[in-house]
Structure formats: structure tokens, C-alpha cells
Design a protein around this nucleic acid. Structure first.
Lengths: 238, 238, 238, 238
DNA sequence: GATGAATGAGAGTTCATTCAT
DNA sequence: GATGAATGAACTCTCATTCAT
């Protein structure tokens, strides 16, 4: 039972930092393979070739370990050079975050799910570092969009939250669909499509005199035209 | 008149269907209140006033019970009269599904999460009835959009899956943000915004002659029709 | 390992009350033999021939089980006919409680210690049934003493708490000394001695004209007598 | 002047005796604050700024450490000058031990409990130094009492052990009641009361002609002496 | 002399599930 | 049809103690 991954009995006595790193690395693998609910500290220990007690020397609890893993993951994400600084066109900048997010979530779906579904629901979420880290990602997207609005390239009449939800909801949904094996999936294409739809969706010049008026006007026109037609028919018959 | 033999709790001996219905109804409540991970079969039994063993008379396992609950929930959703059949305008039809989905997910977040996150990941997902049911919802959206494409109202150069993911991803993300207490949330407004962004995002002729022209054209038409009406009135009077 | 006490695989499927009784009985034995800190639920289960899970069906926790055991023990104690009602002489009544307490504590030292040292320190102690039960024992002693005071047989100028502490402190200390194997120990003699010392210690008629007066009187007498003696001597010499 | 090589925590390399003293001192504090069952060697190490391993360099086990702490505590107690040597009256001497014991137990309840409840139950207790130390305390009390008996001030028909148990049982019970927050507590008053009850309880001549007789006798004597004095005065005057 | 990484045995507890009645 | 007593495997977490460095 328990098919060992390469990392077997990796010597004994490891300096603290290295041990911590090993455990976190292994925990990430286990999480990736098993998912949150099947994540066992015992499996992490076994794969590391250490006792469970050792894990608890460095991490206060299973959840704490997972949170630390999540933070490290976010750190990696944030460490990626914000590709297109300032001057790059709006689309490039948006595309980049979406692309990076898609790639990250797809690479660590269990971790994503843990952060997105479990951690976020935690009453202390807002006090966690992941909260702050997540904000940074969101903030970047918001910044890009707000700048677009300021420049007149984007419409400002949509709730930022709505836009954020569409972007990240779309990202997550797409990743999960893929993970369930629903067809192939090119991160590039997906990011491209999502960027396009969103940008077009909140693109400028769509501000027209209220769409509602159109509908009402159409209804009225329809009524009027029908009436006219009826009358004309009647007239003709007479 | 004495039908109770003293120390008898609620009821006993219920016809199979009724018993099944009671259990499912209760399971849904428990799921709603506790969430998936805190869902206990013992609590369902207790609230039903039956023993845990009885549940296993009717359901093979806890998961089976929950799947049946999910199916029933989907049935309810699908039973809602597809509000605006055929002739209704594209936007109305899309708005309606989005609105209904948002409302449904928000009403049963734990159930949604169970279906969306747990069930979908099940290797047998594609053989389940929920899979088929989910397809129906998706299919409706697809239909609406494809018709839009056929009519030239929508662009056909986007992956249907992308669109679906944006729509449902947006719906889910928005609901969960709300459930975490991130600000108020009007289903109507959310559905409105989401519909707008999506429709605009995949709408045809968006860069084109400017929608404003439509309004102008309408204005002109209105003017003309009004003029016609005036003439007719004059004609009749004469 | 684990030398089985007679009570081995005592059939399966026992009515609830009987099972609860069996567990409590066994828990008491284990507590008696091992003491509180070595008390293992696993040992209780093993001796009962059941699984540990079964214990947790009936008791919320190890501590809960032990509290219930303590309550039952107190119940037994309180069920003992309050030996000498009303009319019996003061000494008989006091002797009886002391004797019964000594016998009870000696029979279940671990249980006593659990109640006396662990439970009493519990922040919720005052809300527990054992608190109330303990009060009944103490109250009986207090009653006896207060009646003695009313009848003028006992002095009322001692704190009730002091008296209670002497009585129960003496009882406990004596039992524990015995349990450590410090010499033989006759409950009867011990109760007798304790009763005597206490009764004498707070016995009446010590109120006399104030001991100080005696001293003063003595001083005066001494002075006077010395004077007299001197005078008499002088008289004789003359 | 720079004696610290930068990143160096507290101190290092302490002479053996000093290190041992530091550890014991700290252990005592931890025991006082946490109680026996919550006493952690790790906390001692942490507070000392040393590693857990170091503790085991000097002490064979946690229990050994605690025993040494208890011994030191007893040494302190015994070092207190037996206040009232020889000639002091019986009551003073008894009062003094009771007072000192009450004060000591109250100051270190966890330590007391450890000695009184855990150590005393140890099969090796009689071979420990604490046993001998405890005997010294007890012996002092015994001495005082035996001298009282010799002098005829106390009755000799009570078991010394009984007396000892009443005294120390009363002391402990009183302290613990206080520690549980059962009302205020003046060591002085408590010691006073306890001394009184005990002394009276085992005081000599208690069965005798009733103390009242003394008073009466005194009164009579006084009357007689006064009469004599009156006569003498009359005689002298004549 | 001191460290601190590592242990390991096992504690209490949980809960979906079974099955004799 | 219903019960409910019983399970048992598995979980997370604890901490005194050891020993290579």
C-alpha cells in the first residue's frame, strides 16, 4: 500500500528550515493527489519518512500546515513578475493576470479549492495572510480596470465586484470543467477568450441612451404599428 | 379515540414514498444548515424522529442520499416553466436563466457546492442523473445563445464552453462572495449586470455603427409612426 | 496482556440501561485500580467486551463518564439511611457521618480523589450534580452541629467552615495515610477518635467566666495569698 | 567591550549548580501557574531559554525534576527557625507550625498537591528525601504534643496519628477550599481556630469535674481569701 | 555543556454503517 | 418496516524522552 514517491527516507536530522520545506512540499503533493478531505497528516509523514509528531513540531495543526502551504503558493504566484507594467496596453495586462491565474489554479486545483472554498469561509479569513495575498491579486485586476475606466476605454457603470466575479468565476469554472475531463483546454485560448468577452462586455461606447428605452419604445411602436396596420386594413376594406 | 399507545414518539410506519420524501426533505434542511462536511446522518434521523438504521433501509449510503436530494433539487429547478419561450427577446431569455440560477444557488448553497464541487469530481459523474439534469440547464443557455448566433445577434466566434463558464462561474462566484458576507447582493441586479456584460461581451456588431444609432433610428421611427397615426386620426375624422 | 476480570464477553446487545450500568460499573473498577490519570477508556471497553465507540454512544466524553460514576457513588452514599434521626444524641449522629464518610472514601479512594481534587477545581463544579450531592453531606454535618449549638451542647463561636474542614480534612487525611500503607486502620476507631476530638474541641461549657478572668483571679489570689502568707509569717514571728 | 557575538539569545554555558538552580526555580513557577497535570517540560525549557535536552542533562526525568523541586521547597520550610523554642507555651508552638504549614501550602498549592497526593502514593515514597523531610515536620508537631502530654497539659489517650491527621487534614482542606474560591481566608484566623479546636479537643482535664467547677472553686477560694483578708485586716486593726 | 530534530506510543474521539431483534 | 446497540477504522494531536551533532 501507499506507493512511495521518490522522496523516501531522506536521511534523518534535517535543519529546521529544510524540514519545514520538505513537509510543506510533500503536503502540497498529497493535497494535489488526494484533495482536502482525504488529506492525511499520516500520509505526509510517511512520504517524508518522518513521524507524525515531527510535523506537529513545526505546524500547530493540520489546518495550519495547509494554510502555510497555501501562503507559499500565493507567494509564488505573486512573485511572478507583473508582466506588463504601466505602459502595456490594457488588454495585455488583463490577459496576463487571467492567464497566470488560470495556469496557477489549474496546476494546483486542490489548493485552489482549499483556499477558495474552505479558507474563505473561515471566520478568521480576513485576518489571514492569504486574505491579504488574495487581495493583491484582485487589486491588480481592479487597478487595471479602473485605469481603463479613467482612460475612457472601459465603462464605469458596472460594479467592480461583478466584474471581479465574472473574471475569477470564469477562470475557476473553466479550470474545474477541465479537471473533470470535459474536453481539452488551452490556457492560452481560454485566457484569450475570457479577456475578450470581459473587455468587450465592459468596453466603452456602449453607454447609449438607456437600453430600456429601446424596449419600451419598441413595445410602443409594436402596439402602434399593429393598430395602424389594423386600421389601414380596415380602411382598405372600406 | 385513543390512538397512541402511551409512550410513542412521533409516528411510525409510514408508507415508503412518504418516508423517503421526509428523509430527503430533512436531509436537505440539514445540509442547508450545516454544510456538507458537517452533515450527519444521525442528525437527519433525529430530526425525522426515526432511527439511523431506517435511513439505510431507503438509501444505500450517505452519499446516495445526498445525490438523491440533489436530483430532486434539480428537478424542481427544471420544473420551473422556461419562462419566456420562443418569441421572447434574447436578453429576456438569458436573464431568466441567470436569475433563476442565481436564486437557486443562493437558496441552497451547500447543495450547490456539493453538486458543483463534489459530485462533478466523481469519476461516475457522467453516469449520474444529475449530470443529465445539469446538461439540461446548460443546454438551455446554449440554445439561447446559439439561436442568438443564428439570428446574427451574437457572435459565433466564441467557444460555447467559454461562455457557459463565464456565465455559471460568474453566478457561482457572486453567490459565494455574498455568502461569505462580502457586501449586499440583489439577485436582480446581479443577474442584470451579468446578463449585460455577457451579452455585450459576445454581442454582434458591438464595435459597429454604434448602438446609439439604434436609438436614433428608433426615435426617427417613433416620430414617423406618430406622424402616421396623426394622419390616420385626421383621415378617420374626415 | 491485560488480565481480564471475570466480566469478559458478556454477550452482545444489551439494553441501554444495562449497558450504561455495565460501563459505569467497569469504569469504577478501572478507576479504583488505576487512578484518574491512568484511567483509559480503552481499558473500560476491553473489560466490558465492547468497542470504545460504544462507550461514546452513552457518554459524551471520558470526563462525562467519570462524573456520572461519581454521581452514582454519591447517590449510594446518600441512600444510606441517615442512621440516627432526630432524637439520637449529638455524638451518635456526628459519629455516624464521620464513620460513613471514612468508609466510603476508603472504599473508593480514586473516586474520592477525583471528586475532591479534580471535580471541585472544575469551573463548572457548582453547576454539577455532585456539587449538590456534596452539599447534602456537608449540610447534614452542619445541621448536627448547629443543633448542638442551639441546645447549648456546642460552642457557637467557631466558623462552620473551620469545623467542616477539620472533620473532612481529618477524614481524608486519615484515609490517605492508610492507603499509603502507614499502619493499620480501624474505621471505627478512627471515627471514634475524630468524633471525640472534634466534639471536645468545640464542646460547650468552656465558656466559663472567661479564662482570662481565671488567670487574673489566680494572679490576684497569688498576690493575696502571698500577702497573707507574709502577714501570717509576720504574725507568727511577733 | 563587545562581548556578544551578535545573534546570541540569553546566556550560554552556565555553571552546573547555577543551571540546576535556574531550572528548578523555573519548574516551580511553571508548576505553580499550571498545576501538575499541565506542567510541561517544554515550558520550563522555553522560559529558561534553554533546550529541553539540557533539562535531561541534569534531571533524569520530569518526575525527578519535580521531586527535587519538592525537596528544595521542604528545605526552605524546615529552614524557618522553629520560632518558639523550648520554653514557649504549648499553644504558641502548635500555632506556629500550623500557621507556617497553612502559609506554605497556600503559597504553593500545586507543589503541595504533588507531594501530598502524587508523591505520597509512590511505592518508593518511603525511600525519598521528601519522606524524611515530611517526617521532620510531623515530628515537630508530635514533639510538641508529646511534651504537652508529659506536662499533663494534653491527654495522652489519643492516637498521635489521629491528631496529626486532624491537624494536617484541617490545614489542607482549608487551603483547598480557599483555592477553589470558597470565601475569604485569613491564615492567621484559620491557624488560630484550628489550634484552638485541636488543643481543646485533646486538652487535659476535660472530663474532669467540669471546668465550671474550677470557676466555682475559684469563686469560692476568692470568697474565702477575701474573708481571710478581711479578718486579717480586722486583726491588724485591733 | 548544549542543542534541537526526531520520536512513538497511544490518547480521546468521530461517525457511517451493519444487523440481530 | 423499524429499531438501536454495536462497531471499528481512522482521525488529529500530545509530550516526555533520546541522541547525533
Amino acid at each position: 500500500m501507499a506507493t512511495q514517491t521518490s522522496t523516501r527516507p531522506p536521511v534523518r536530522r534535517m535543519p529546521r528550515d529544510q524540514r519545514v520545506a520538505t513537509i510543506m512540499q510533500t503536503a502540497r503533493e498529497v493535497l494535489r493527489e488526494r484533495g482536502y478531505e482525504q488529506f492525511l497528516t499520516s500520509e505526509v509523514a510517511e512520504r517524508c519518512g518522518i513521524s507524525e509528531g515531527t510535523i506537529y513540531k513545526y505546524f500547530a495543526s493540520k489546518r495550519d500546515l495547509l494554510i502555510r502551504v497555501a501562503e507559499a503558493w500565493f507567494d509564488e504566484f505573486l512573485a511572478q513578475e507583473p508582466p506588463s507594467r504601466q505602459n502595456r496596453p490594457l488588454r495585455d495586462r488583463l490577459f496576463h493576470v487571467i492567464y497566470a491565474s488560470l495556469a496557477t489554479i489549474r496546476r494546483e486545483p486542490a489548493l485552489s479549492r482549499f483556499v477558495l472554498m474552505d479558507l474563505r469561509a473561515d471566520p478568521n479569513y480576513r485576518k489571514m495572510r492569504v486574505f491579504e495575498q488574495n487581495r493583491q491579486v484582485t487589486a491588480y485586476v481592479m487597478d487595471v480596470i479602473e485605469e481603463g475606466v479613467r482612460r475612457g476605454e472601459l465603462r464605469g457603470d458596472f460594479s467592480m465586484k461583478l466584474v471581479r466575479d465574472i473574471i475569477f468565476g470564469g477562470i475557476e469554472h473553466q479550470t474545474w470543467a477541465f479537471l473533470r475531463g470535459e474536453g481539452e483546454f488551452s490556457i492560452e485560448e481560454a485566457a484569450d477568450g475570457l479577456t475578450d468577452v470581459v473587455l468587450r462586455g465592459i468596453g466603452a461606447h456602449v453607454h447609449q441612451p438607456e437600453p430600456i428605452d429601446v424596449t419600451e419604445a419598441l413595445s410602443r411602436l409594436e402596439t402602434v404599428t399593429n393598430a395602424l396596420q389594423g386600421e389601414l386594413t380596415a380602411l382598405r376594406k372600406s
